[in-house]
Nucleic acid binder design. Structure first.
Lengths: 231, 231
DNA sequence: TCAAAAGTGTTTGGGTTACACCCATGG
DNA sequence: CCATGGGTGTAACCCAAACACTTTTGA
Protein backbone atom coordinates (compact mmCIF):
# COMPACT_ATOMS: atom_id res chain seq x y z
CA UNK A 1 0.00 0.00 0.00
CA UNK A 2 2.74 2.37 0.91
CA UNK A 3 4.67 0.93 -2.02
CA UNK A 4 1.77 1.67 -4.31
CA UNK A 5 1.51 5.17 -2.94
CA UNK A 6 5.22 5.61 -3.44
CA UNK A 7 4.94 4.41 -7.03
CA UNK A 8 2.14 6.83 -7.71
CA UNK A 9 4.23 9.50 -6.10
CA UNK A 10 7.14 8.74 -8.38
CA UNK A 11 4.99 8.95 -11.47
CA UNK A 12 3.20 12.12 -10.55
CA UNK A 13 4.86 15.41 -11.47
CA UNK A 14 5.26 17.02 -8.06
CA UNK A 15 8.54 15.14 -7.77
CA UNK A 16 10.03 18.20 -9.42
CA UNK A 17 10.18 21.33 -7.31
CA UNK A 18 7.87 23.99 -8.63
CA UNK A 19 8.51 27.73 -8.88
CA UNK A 20 7.17 30.40 -6.59
CA UNK A 21 4.20 31.82 -8.50
CA UNK A 22 2.91 35.35 -8.06
CA UNK A 23 0.37 37.68 -9.64
CA UNK A 24 1.40 41.26 -10.37
CA UNK A 25 -1.03 44.04 -11.18
CA UNK A 26 -0.25 46.87 -13.57
CA UNK A 27 -3.10 49.25 -12.79
CA UNK A 28 -3.15 52.25 -15.08
CA UNK A 29 -5.20 55.41 -15.14
CA UNK A 30 -5.30 58.74 -16.90
CA UNK A 31 -4.86 61.32 -14.16
CA UNK A 32 -4.21 64.99 -14.60
CA UNK A 33 -3.74 64.56 -18.30
CA UNK A 34 -1.08 61.89 -18.01
CA UNK A 35 -1.02 58.12 -18.00
CA UNK A 36 -0.14 56.95 -14.52
CA UNK A 37 0.58 53.64 -12.90
CA UNK A 38 -0.30 52.55 -9.39
CA UNK A 39 2.69 51.60 -7.26
CA UNK A 40 2.83 50.26 -3.76
CA UNK A 41 5.61 50.58 -1.26
CA UNK A 42 6.61 47.20 0.00
CA UNK A 43 6.05 46.77 3.71
CA UNK A 44 8.10 43.61 4.10
CA UNK A 45 11.31 42.05 2.95
CA UNK A 46 12.51 41.54 0.35
CA UNK A 47 13.02 45.03 -0.94
CA UNK A 48 11.10 46.57 1.94
CA UNK A 49 10.52 50.25 1.33
CA UNK A 50 10.97 49.94 -2.43
CA UNK A 51 8.17 50.81 -4.81
CA UNK A 52 6.69 47.96 -6.82
CA UNK A 53 3.60 46.83 -8.64
CA UNK A 54 0.96 45.56 -6.24
CA UNK A 55 0.90 41.80 -6.29
CA UNK A 56 0.58 38.65 -4.31
CA UNK A 57 1.16 34.95 -4.18
CA UNK A 58 -0.96 32.59 -6.24
CA UNK A 59 -3.08 30.54 -3.85
CA UNK A 60 -4.18 27.30 -5.45
CA UNK A 61 -6.48 26.67 -2.52
CA UNK A 62 -8.31 29.96 -3.04
CA UNK A 63 -8.06 30.72 -6.77
CA UNK A 64 -10.04 28.76 -9.36
CA UNK A 65 -7.89 30.05 -12.21
CA UNK A 66 -5.43 32.82 -13.06
CA UNK A 67 -8.13 35.42 -13.64
CA UNK A 68 -9.64 34.65 -10.26
CA UNK A 69 -6.22 34.96 -8.69
CA UNK A 70 -5.90 38.40 -10.27
CA UNK A 71 -9.22 39.51 -8.78
CA UNK A 72 -8.41 38.15 -5.33
CA UNK A 73 -5.06 39.89 -5.37
CA UNK A 74 -6.77 43.12 -6.35
CA UNK A 75 -9.27 42.80 -3.51
CA UNK A 76 -6.60 42.07 -0.94
CA UNK A 77 -4.11 44.71 -2.02
CA UNK A 78 -6.34 47.47 -3.37
CA UNK A 79 -9.73 46.75 -1.90
CA UNK A 80 -11.50 46.70 -5.27
CA UNK A 81 -12.31 44.38 -8.16
CA UNK A 82 -10.61 44.99 -11.48
CA UNK A 83 -13.18 44.38 -14.21
CA UNK A 84 -11.55 44.22 -17.61
CA UNK A 85 -8.16 43.12 -16.36
CA UNK A 86 -6.26 41.34 -19.11
CA UNK A 87 -3.25 39.11 -18.87
CA UNK A 88 -0.09 40.72 -20.17
CA UNK A 89 2.58 38.07 -19.95
CA UNK A 90 4.33 35.67 -17.68
CA UNK A 91 7.90 36.24 -16.62
CA UNK A 92 9.98 33.78 -14.73
CA UNK A 93 13.48 32.75 -13.91
CA UNK A 94 16.09 32.29 -11.27
CA UNK A 95 17.04 35.24 -9.11
CA UNK A 96 14.00 37.33 -9.92
CA UNK A 97 12.93 37.23 -6.30
CA UNK A 98 15.22 36.47 -3.38
CA UNK A 99 12.44 34.65 -1.55
CA UNK A 100 12.65 31.64 -3.79
CA UNK A 101 15.18 29.96 -6.07
CA UNK A 102 12.82 30.35 -9.02
CA UNK A 103 10.02 32.90 -9.30
CA UNK A 104 7.29 33.14 -11.88
CA UNK A 105 4.96 36.12 -12.13
CA UNK A 106 1.81 36.36 -14.21
CA UNK A 107 1.19 40.03 -14.93
CA UNK A 108 -2.22 41.58 -15.44
CA UNK A 109 -3.01 44.99 -16.84
CA UNK A 110 -6.10 47.02 -16.00
CA UNK A 111 -7.43 50.50 -16.59
CA UNK A 112 -9.17 52.25 -13.74
CA UNK A 113 -11.08 55.51 -13.76
CA UNK A 114 -9.84 58.13 -11.34
CA UNK A 115 -12.81 57.87 -9.03
CA UNK A 116 -12.93 54.09 -8.88
CA UNK A 117 -10.01 53.72 -6.57
CA UNK A 118 -10.04 55.07 -3.08
CA UNK A 119 -6.38 54.55 -2.54
CA UNK A 120 -6.49 52.54 0.64
CA UNK A 121 -3.58 50.22 1.03
CA UNK A 122 -4.57 46.67 1.86
CA UNK A 123 -2.62 43.81 3.36
CA UNK A 124 1.13 44.20 3.27
CA UNK A 125 0.90 47.50 1.44
CA UNK A 126 2.52 50.32 3.36
CA UNK A 127 1.33 52.94 0.92
CA UNK A 128 -0.07 53.36 -2.57
CA UNK A 129 0.58 56.16 -5.01
CA UNK A 130 0.08 57.11 -8.64
CA UNK A 131 3.23 57.69 -10.65
CA UNK A 132 3.41 58.96 -14.24
CA UNK A 133 4.08 55.91 -16.40
CA UNK A 134 7.02 57.58 -18.14
CA UNK A 135 8.74 58.24 -14.84
CA UNK A 136 8.06 54.73 -13.55
CA UNK A 137 9.54 53.13 -16.65
CA UNK A 138 12.63 55.28 -16.42
CA UNK A 139 13.01 54.71 -12.66
CA UNK A 140 15.64 52.04 -12.15
CA UNK A 141 14.99 51.79 -8.44
CA UNK A 142 11.74 49.88 -8.78
CA UNK A 143 11.69 46.49 -7.13
CA UNK A 144 12.37 43.35 -9.16
CA UNK A 145 11.87 43.75 -12.92
CA UNK A 146 8.75 45.86 -12.56
CA UNK A 147 10.00 48.69 -14.73
CA UNK A 148 10.02 46.38 -17.72
CA UNK A 149 6.57 45.12 -16.88
CA UNK A 150 5.14 48.64 -16.77
CA UNK A 151 6.73 49.32 -20.14
CA UNK A 152 5.02 46.27 -21.57
CA UNK A 153 1.70 47.29 -20.07
CA UNK A 154 1.87 50.76 -21.56
CA UNK A 155 2.88 49.45 -24.97
CA UNK A 156 -0.01 47.01 -25.13
CA UNK A 157 -2.45 49.69 -24.00
CA UNK A 158 -1.17 52.09 -26.67
CA UNK A 159 -1.57 49.47 -29.36
CA UNK A 160 -5.20 49.01 -28.38
CA UNK A 161 -6.09 52.69 -28.17
CA UNK A 162 -4.37 53.20 -31.52
CA UNK A 163 -6.99 50.98 -33.15
CA UNK A 164 -9.84 52.35 -31.03
CA UNK A 165 -10.19 49.32 -28.78
CA UNK A 166 -10.83 51.11 -25.55
CA UNK A 167 -10.39 49.02 -22.47
CA UNK A 168 -13.31 49.14 -20.08
CA UNK A 169 -12.17 51.23 -17.17
CA UNK A 170 -10.46 53.79 -19.35
CA UNK A 171 -13.50 56.04 -19.14
CA UNK A 172 -16.38 56.48 -16.76
CA UNK A 173 -19.60 54.82 -17.86
CA UNK A 174 -20.70 57.92 -19.72
CA UNK A 175 -18.36 60.46 -21.22
CA UNK A 176 -18.12 63.12 -23.89
CA UNK A 177 -16.18 62.60 -27.09
CA UNK A 178 -13.87 65.35 -26.00
CA UNK A 179 -13.03 63.45 -22.84
CA UNK A 180 -12.43 60.26 -24.80
CA UNK A 181 -10.11 62.10 -27.12
CA UNK A 182 -8.22 63.67 -24.23
CA UNK A 183 -7.76 60.28 -22.60
CA UNK A 184 -6.56 58.77 -25.87
CA UNK A 185 -4.09 61.57 -26.30
CA UNK A 186 -2.78 61.05 -22.79
CA UNK A 187 -2.27 57.34 -23.46
CA UNK A 188 -0.67 57.80 -26.86
CA UNK A 189 1.34 60.82 -25.87
CA UNK A 190 0.45 62.77 -28.99
CA UNK A 191 -2.39 65.05 -30.11
CA UNK A 192 -5.21 63.72 -32.25
CA UNK A 193 -7.33 65.52 -34.80
CA UNK A 194 -10.85 65.99 -33.51
CA UNK A 195 -12.57 65.52 -36.82
CA UNK A 196 -10.81 62.39 -37.97
CA UNK A 197 -10.93 60.93 -34.49
CA UNK A 198 -14.72 61.19 -34.52
CA UNK A 199 -15.04 59.90 -38.04
CA UNK A 200 -12.96 56.88 -37.12
CA UNK A 201 -15.03 56.39 -33.98
CA UNK A 202 -18.33 56.07 -35.75
CA UNK A 203 -16.81 54.07 -38.58
CA UNK A 204 -15.67 51.59 -35.95
CA UNK A 205 -18.97 51.85 -34.11
CA UNK A 206 -17.22 51.46 -30.79
CA UNK A 207 -19.12 54.25 -29.11
CA UNK A 208 -22.84 54.88 -28.75
CA UNK A 209 -24.66 58.09 -27.80
CA UNK A 210 -26.85 57.95 -24.71
CA UNK A 211 -30.04 59.67 -25.88
CA UNK A 212 -31.02 62.71 -23.93
CA UNK A 213 -27.98 62.60 -21.71
CA UNK A 214 -25.88 65.70 -21.83
CA UNK A 215 -22.97 66.97 -19.87
CA UNK A 216 -23.53 70.56 -18.99
CA UNK A 217 -20.36 72.38 -18.10
CA UNK A 218 -19.11 75.86 -18.37
CA UNK A 219 -19.90 76.03 -22.06
CA UNK A 220 -21.94 74.28 -24.68
CA UNK A 221 -23.33 70.99 -23.33
CA UNK A 222 -21.96 67.83 -24.87
CA UNK A 223 -23.61 64.60 -25.86
CA UNK A 224 -22.72 61.70 -23.56
CA UNK A 225 -21.57 58.36 -24.98
CA UNK A 226 -20.93 54.86 -23.70
CA UNK A 227 -18.49 52.22 -24.86
CA UNK A 228 -20.03 49.68 -27.20
CA UNK A 229 -18.83 46.09 -26.71
CA UNK A 230 -16.61 44.98 -29.54
CA UNK A 231 -17.54 41.95 -31.63
CA UNK B 1 18.56 28.96 16.05
CA UNK B 2 15.87 26.53 15.07
CA UNK B 3 13.38 29.16 16.22
CA UNK B 4 14.96 31.64 13.90
CA UNK B 5 14.87 29.16 11.05
CA UNK B 6 11.25 28.44 11.78
CA UNK B 7 10.44 32.12 11.78
CA UNK B 8 12.17 32.54 8.45
CA UNK B 9 10.26 29.54 7.18
CA UNK B 10 6.97 31.09 8.20
CA UNK B 11 7.79 34.28 6.41
CA UNK B 12 8.95 32.69 3.19
CA UNK B 13 6.29 31.97 0.58
CA UNK B 14 6.74 28.23 -0.01
CA UNK B 15 4.34 27.68 2.85
CA UNK B 16 1.67 27.85 0.17
CA UNK B 17 1.46 24.91 -2.22
CA UNK B 18 2.46 25.91 -5.72
CA UNK B 19 0.86 24.87 -9.00
CA UNK B 20 2.16 22.29 -11.43
CA UNK B 21 3.90 24.35 -14.11
CA UNK B 22 4.36 23.21 -17.68
CA UNK B 23 5.59 24.59 -20.99
CA UNK B 24 3.51 23.93 -24.12
CA UNK B 25 4.78 24.47 -27.64
CA UNK B 26 2.59 25.63 -30.50
CA UNK B 27 4.86 24.89 -33.45
CA UNK B 28 3.43 26.13 -36.73
CA UNK B 29 4.49 25.72 -40.32
CA UNK B 30 3.18 26.40 -43.79
CA UNK B 31 3.02 22.99 -45.43
CA UNK B 32 1.36 22.15 -48.70
CA UNK B 33 -0.14 25.60 -48.94
CA UNK B 34 -1.81 25.48 -45.54
CA UNK B 35 -0.92 26.58 -42.03
CA UNK B 36 -0.32 23.49 -39.96
CA UNK B 37 0.37 22.81 -36.32
CA UNK B 38 2.56 20.10 -34.87
CA UNK B 39 0.76 17.70 -32.57
CA UNK B 40 2.11 14.81 -30.55
CA UNK B 41 0.30 11.74 -29.43
CA UNK B 42 0.64 11.36 -25.69
CA UNK B 43 2.47 8.22 -24.69
CA UNK B 44 1.50 8.31 -21.03
CA UNK B 45 -1.42 9.02 -18.78
CA UNK B 46 -3.24 11.26 -18.50
CA UNK B 47 -5.00 11.28 -21.83
CA UNK B 48 -2.68 8.64 -23.26
CA UNK B 49 -3.29 8.25 -26.96
CA UNK B 50 -4.81 11.71 -27.32
CA UNK B 51 -3.23 14.32 -29.56
CA UNK B 52 -1.85 17.39 -27.84
CA UNK B 53 0.67 20.17 -28.17
CA UNK B 54 4.17 18.96 -27.34
CA UNK B 55 5.15 20.16 -23.92
CA UNK B 56 6.86 19.33 -20.69
CA UNK B 57 7.29 20.17 -17.07
CA UNK B 58 9.14 23.31 -16.01
CA UNK B 59 12.34 22.26 -14.28
CA UNK B 60 13.64 24.95 -12.02
CA UNK B 61 16.85 23.01 -11.56
CA UNK B 62 17.55 22.96 -15.30
CA UNK B 63 15.94 26.10 -16.70
CA UNK B 64 17.38 29.55 -16.07
CA UNK B 65 14.16 31.25 -17.18
CA UNK B 66 10.98 30.62 -19.12
CA UNK B 67 12.60 31.04 -22.52
CA UNK B 68 15.27 28.52 -21.58
CA UNK B 69 12.57 26.14 -20.43
CA UNK B 70 10.93 26.50 -23.82
CA UNK B 71 14.15 25.59 -25.61
CA UNK B 72 14.87 22.62 -23.36
CA UNK B 73 11.36 21.32 -23.88
CA UNK B 74 11.82 21.67 -27.65
CA UNK B 75 15.08 19.76 -27.54
CA UNK B 76 13.64 16.96 -25.47
CA UNK B 77 10.37 16.57 -27.31
CA UNK B 78 11.29 17.53 -30.87
CA UNK B 79 15.05 17.20 -30.99
CA UNK B 80 15.60 20.77 -32.22
CA UNK B 81 15.98 24.32 -30.98
CA UNK B 82 13.20 26.79 -31.70
CA UNK B 83 14.82 30.11 -32.55
CA UNK B 84 12.28 32.89 -32.59
CA UNK B 85 9.87 31.25 -30.22
CA UNK B 86 7.68 33.85 -28.53
CA UNK B 87 5.55 33.57 -25.45
CA UNK B 88 1.84 33.53 -26.17
CA UNK B 89 0.13 33.43 -22.81
CA UNK B 90 -0.14 31.63 -19.55
CA UNK B 91 -3.20 29.60 -18.71
CA UNK B 92 -3.89 28.09 -15.36
CA UNK B 93 -6.56 26.77 -13.11
CA UNK B 94 -7.98 23.84 -11.27
CA UNK B 95 -8.88 20.74 -13.23
CA UNK B 96 -6.84 21.61 -16.28
CA UNK B 97 -4.68 18.56 -15.80
CA UNK B 98 -5.66 15.53 -13.74
CA UNK B 99 -2.08 15.06 -12.58
CA UNK B 100 -2.26 17.98 -10.22
CA UNK B 101 -4.86 19.96 -8.33
CA UNK B 102 -3.80 23.15 -10.06
CA UNK B 103 -1.95 23.33 -13.37
CA UNK B 104 -0.33 26.34 -15.03
CA UNK B 105 0.98 26.23 -18.60
CA UNK B 106 3.11 28.84 -20.28
CA UNK B 107 2.53 28.57 -24.01
CA UNK B 108 5.10 29.40 -26.67
CA UNK B 109 4.53 29.86 -30.37
CA UNK B 110 7.13 29.25 -33.06
CA UNK B 111 7.28 29.09 -36.83
CA UNK B 112 9.36 26.36 -38.38
CA UNK B 113 10.29 25.88 -42.03
CA UNK B 114 9.26 22.57 -43.52
CA UNK B 115 12.80 21.22 -43.77
CA UNK B 116 13.89 22.26 -40.28
CA UNK B 117 12.05 19.53 -38.49
CA UNK B 118 12.86 15.89 -39.01
CA UNK B 119 9.81 14.68 -37.20
CA UNK B 120 11.47 12.41 -34.73
CA UNK B 121 9.52 11.99 -31.56
CA UNK B 122 11.59 12.50 -28.45
CA UNK B 123 10.99 11.50 -24.86
CA UNK B 124 7.41 10.58 -24.02
CA UNK B 125 6.24 11.34 -27.53
CA UNK B 126 4.69 8.33 -29.21
CA UNK B 127 4.33 10.07 -32.52
CA UNK B 128 4.36 13.51 -34.10
CA UNK B 129 2.28 14.77 -36.98
CA UNK B 130 1.34 17.95 -38.78
CA UNK B 131 -2.34 18.86 -38.73
CA UNK B 132 -3.97 21.77 -40.60
CA UNK B 133 -4.52 24.51 -38.03
CA UNK B 134 -8.16 24.90 -39.00
CA UNK B 135 -8.85 21.24 -38.34
CA UNK B 136 -6.95 21.25 -35.05
CA UNK B 137 -8.88 24.24 -33.75
CA UNK B 138 -12.18 22.63 -34.67
CA UNK B 139 -11.18 19.26 -33.22
CA UNK B 140 -12.76 18.94 -29.80
CA UNK B 141 -10.89 15.74 -29.00
CA UNK B 142 -7.56 17.41 -28.39
CA UNK B 143 -6.13 16.89 -24.92
CA UNK B 144 -6.63 19.55 -22.25
CA UNK B 145 -7.49 23.03 -23.56
CA UNK B 146 -5.06 22.83 -26.44
CA UNK B 147 -7.61 23.68 -29.11
CA UNK B 148 -8.00 27.13 -27.61
CA UNK B 149 -4.26 27.56 -27.37
CA UNK B 150 -3.81 26.75 -31.07
CA UNK B 151 -6.49 29.28 -31.89
CA UNK B 152 -4.63 31.93 -29.94
CA UNK B 153 -1.37 31.03 -31.64
CA UNK B 154 -2.88 31.34 -35.10
CA UNK B 155 -4.56 34.63 -34.28
CA UNK B 156 -1.36 36.19 -33.00
CA UNK B 157 0.56 34.96 -36.02
CA UNK B 158 -2.05 36.41 -38.39
CA UNK B 159 -1.89 39.79 -36.67
CA UNK B 160 1.86 39.88 -37.22
CA UNK B 161 1.83 38.80 -40.86
CA UNK B 162 -0.92 41.34 -41.48
CA UNK B 163 1.51 44.14 -40.64
CA UNK B 164 4.44 42.43 -42.37
CA UNK B 165 6.21 41.35 -39.21
CA UNK B 166 7.39 37.99 -40.39
CA UNK B 167 8.49 35.66 -37.65
CA UNK B 168 11.89 34.12 -38.20
CA UNK B 169 11.27 30.53 -39.14
CA UNK B 170 8.37 31.38 -41.40
CA UNK B 171 10.66 31.26 -44.42
CA UNK B 172 13.94 29.60 -45.26
CA UNK B 173 16.97 31.87 -45.00
CA UNK B 174 16.59 32.93 -48.64
CA UNK B 175 13.34 33.00 -50.53
CA UNK B 176 11.62 34.61 -53.47
CA UNK B 177 8.95 37.24 -53.03
CA UNK B 178 6.49 34.86 -54.59
CA UNK B 179 7.20 32.31 -51.89
CA UNK B 180 6.82 34.94 -49.17
CA UNK B 181 3.50 35.98 -50.62
CA UNK B 182 2.29 32.39 -50.84
CA UNK B 183 3.24 31.78 -47.21
CA UNK B 184 1.48 34.96 -46.12
CA UNK B 185 -1.63 33.95 -47.99
CA UNK B 186 -1.57 30.55 -46.33
CA UNK B 187 -1.32 32.15 -42.90
CA UNK B 188 -3.98 34.77 -43.53
CA UNK B 189 -6.28 32.49 -45.45
CA UNK B 190 -6.94 35.01 -48.18
CA UNK B 191 -5.27 36.04 -51.45
CA UNK B 192 -3.03 39.09 -51.58
CA UNK B 193 -2.36 41.42 -54.47
CA UNK B 194 1.15 40.92 -55.78
CA UNK B 195 1.79 44.53 -56.62
CA UNK B 196 0.63 46.08 -53.39
CA UNK B 197 2.24 43.32 -51.35
CA UNK B 198 5.60 44.20 -52.86
CA UNK B 199 5.11 47.91 -52.52
CA UNK B 200 4.25 47.47 -48.87
CA UNK B 201 7.28 45.21 -48.42
CA UNK B 202 9.81 47.75 -49.56
CA UNK B 203 8.00 50.58 -47.82
CA UNK B 204 8.42 48.60 -44.59
CA UNK B 205 11.97 47.62 -45.49
CA UNK B 206 11.50 44.25 -43.88
CA UNK B 207 13.07 42.32 -46.71
CA UNK B 208 16.44 42.70 -48.42
CA UNK B 209 17.60 41.29 -51.75
CA UNK B 210 20.64 39.01 -51.68
CA UNK B 211 22.76 40.35 -54.55
CA UNK B 212 23.52 37.85 -57.26
CA UNK B 213 21.48 35.11 -55.69
CA UNK B 214 18.75 33.77 -57.92
CA UNK B 215 16.41 30.89 -57.70
CA UNK B 216 16.33 29.12 -61.03
CA UNK B 217 13.25 26.98 -61.48
CA UNK B 218 11.13 25.90 -64.38
CA UNK B 219 10.65 29.46 -65.54
CA UNK B 220 12.15 32.87 -65.17
CA UNK B 221 14.67 32.92 -62.28
CA UNK B 222 13.68 34.97 -59.28
CA UNK B 223 15.66 37.27 -57.02
CA UNK B 224 16.30 35.81 -53.59
CA UNK B 225 15.61 37.83 -50.45
CA UNK B 226 16.29 37.58 -46.72
CA UNK B 227 14.35 38.87 -43.76
CA UNK B 228 15.67 42.15 -42.40
CA UNK B 229 15.63 42.48 -38.63
CA UNK B 230 12.97 44.92 -37.49
CA UNK B 231 13.92 48.01 -35.50
C1' DT C 1 -20.65 90.03 -26.67
C1' DC C 2 -16.93 87.13 -25.96
C1' DA C 3 -14.37 82.97 -24.66
C1' DA C 4 -14.41 78.21 -24.81
C1' DA C 5 -15.76 74.00 -26.08
C1' DA C 6 -19.09 71.14 -29.13
C1' DG C 7 -19.82 69.61 -33.48
C1' DT C 8 -19.64 69.59 -38.97
C1' DG C 9 -17.75 70.05 -43.74
C1' DT C 10 -14.28 70.22 -47.33
C1' DT C 11 -9.94 69.70 -49.29
C1' DT C 12 -5.95 67.13 -50.00
C1' DG C 13 -2.50 63.64 -50.19
C1' DG C 14 -0.58 59.21 -49.15
C1' DG C 15 -1.18 54.54 -49.60
C1' DT C 16 -3.70 50.42 -51.10
C1' DT C 17 -6.41 47.88 -54.40
C1' DA C 18 -7.28 46.17 -58.78
C1' DC C 19 -5.80 45.18 -63.06
C1' DA C 20 -3.06 45.37 -67.02
C1' DC C 21 1.08 44.78 -68.94
C1' DC C 22 6.16 43.33 -70.10
C1' DC C 23 10.14 40.00 -69.04
C1' DA C 24 12.67 35.80 -68.83
C1' DT C 25 13.08 30.94 -69.24
C1' DG C 26 12.49 25.72 -69.85
C1' DG C 27 10.16 22.72 -72.38
C1' DC D 1 6.75 29.81 -79.31
C1' DC D 2 4.05 29.26 -75.47
C1' DA D 3 2.87 28.40 -70.77
C1' DT D 4 4.28 30.01 -66.41
C1' DG D 5 5.81 32.66 -62.82
C1' DG D 6 8.79 37.00 -62.00
C1' DG D 7 8.51 41.79 -62.05
C1' DT D 8 6.64 46.75 -63.09
C1' DG D 9 3.43 50.34 -64.15
C1' DT D 10 -1.06 53.00 -63.77
C1' DA D 11 -5.60 54.55 -62.65
C1' DA D 12 -9.33 54.37 -59.18
C1' DC D 13 -10.34 54.60 -54.72
C1' DC D 14 -10.40 54.88 -49.74
C1' DC D 15 -9.07 56.71 -45.60
C1' DA D 16 -7.56 59.96 -42.60
C1' DA D 17 -4.95 64.32 -41.63
C1' DA D 18 -5.41 69.14 -41.75
C1' DC D 19 -7.95 73.03 -41.21
C1' DA D 20 -11.71 76.03 -41.51
C1' DC D 21 -16.13 76.76 -40.16
C1' DT D 22 -20.67 77.00 -37.51
C1' DT D 23 -23.20 76.23 -33.08
C1' DT D 24 -24.14 76.65 -28.31
C1' DT D 25 -23.65 78.07 -23.80
C1' DG D 26 -22.14 80.66 -19.26
C1' DA D 27 -20.04 84.49 -17.72
Amino acid sequence: MTAKAAAAETRTPPVHPMPFVRIELAVLSVLEGALQVLLGRRAEAPMAGRWALPGGVLRIDLDADLDAACQRTARERLGIELPGAVQLAAVGGRSRDPRAPWALSVVYRCMVTPGRLAIEPGKRMAELKWVPAQAAIADDKLAFDHGLLIDKAVQSLRAEVEVLRFAPGLMEQAFTLGELQAASEAVLGRPLDKSSFRRRLDAAGCVKPVPGELRTGAFRPAQLYRLELQH
